[in-house]
């Protein structure tokens, strides 16, 4: 008898979490969107009483997980391609595609006065390292390459490139001063409507293709009212105001 009670308690301990405080939806979020997503989930819980459980990883990792049946209801990607691929593969719900944020590119240095407001420093090229995210992996890296091409600096600066695996690592290269300057996301250096450290050039948006971050409802979340509510919530003015406050644009 005591053994049975013990086993029951053990099982409750192991699985109680999922049974009792049942999460109402699971959202896969590209890691560059971590901070705003947490803020959005808080607000969503206040508004709807539903708990959105967030999982953060790179867009490619989440894509691979979702393709292999990971239990997510919604996917907030850092690009448009991953979401489109899932739509074509029938793993995302047609018609749920939503551009929830536009990433903005910033040429940034941790030293104040190093980068000027017109990006002249880039043309002078008097630095040893220019950090950017790997263009094969990260949308911000692709955008950085487009900017360099538009300025005619692609070949001349290529020998100075150091590539971050993602935009967070690229930011670390510049923040630690090992690269004098680099292309990072505006959202990484944006606090309360202003640049918080160092010097920067906000790259004009006509120099690169917009960095569209696309969200989709996944097959698993199709029947989940909380997941549908989350997708609607992303389009409300209060959600968009939160997203803007982190330095993202909107379409």
């Amino acid at each position: 008898m005591r053994l049975r009670v013990g086993i029951f308690l053990l099982l409750l301990l192991l699985f109680g979490n999922t049974l009792l405080g049942a999460a109402t939806l699971q959202v896969a979020v590209a890691s560059n969107f971590t901070a705003p997503a947490q803020r959005l989930a808080e607000r969503f819980a206040q508004e709807s009483g539903e708990q959105a459980v967030l999982s953060f990883a790179s867009t490619a990792k989440l894509y691979a997980q979702i393709s292999n049946g990971a239990p997510f209801d919604c996917f907030l990607a850092a690009d448009a391609e991953s979401a489109d691929k899932l739509l074509r593969a029938g793993r995302a719900v047609a018609g749920s595609r939503l551009t929830y944020a536009l990433g903005k590119l910033l040429l940034w240095s941790a030293q104040s006065g190093y980068v000027d407001g017109q990006g002249e420093r880039l043309r002078r090229g008097d630095f040893a390292h220019l950090a950017l995210a790997d263009p094969r992996l990260a949308p911000y890296g692709r955008a950085a390459v487009e900017v360099l091409r538009a300025l005619g600096l692609l070949e001349s600066l290529q020998s100075k490139w150091v590539l971050g695996e993602n935009i967070a690592q690229t930011h670390q290269f510049v923040a630690t001063g090992n690269a004098e300057l680099g292309f990072v996301a505006l959202a990484q250096q944006f606090e309360g409507g202003a640049l918080n450290k160092g010097s920067a050039w906000l790259v004009p948006e006509e120099l690169y293709q917009p960095i569209r971050q696309v969200a989709v409802l996944l097959e698993r979340g199709k029947e989940n009212p909380a997941a549908l509510a989350w997708m609607r919530f992303l389009q409300t003015e209060q959600a968009r105001a939160i997203i803007r406050s982190y330095g993202y644009g909107e379409e």
């Binding site: 490619a60 990792k61 094969r136 992996l137 695996e165």
Partner: peptide, 11 residues
Amino acid sequence: SVQIYSHVESL
């Protein structure tokens, strides 16, 4: 190892 990682991440 970095090359493999890049290949996987770029699908």
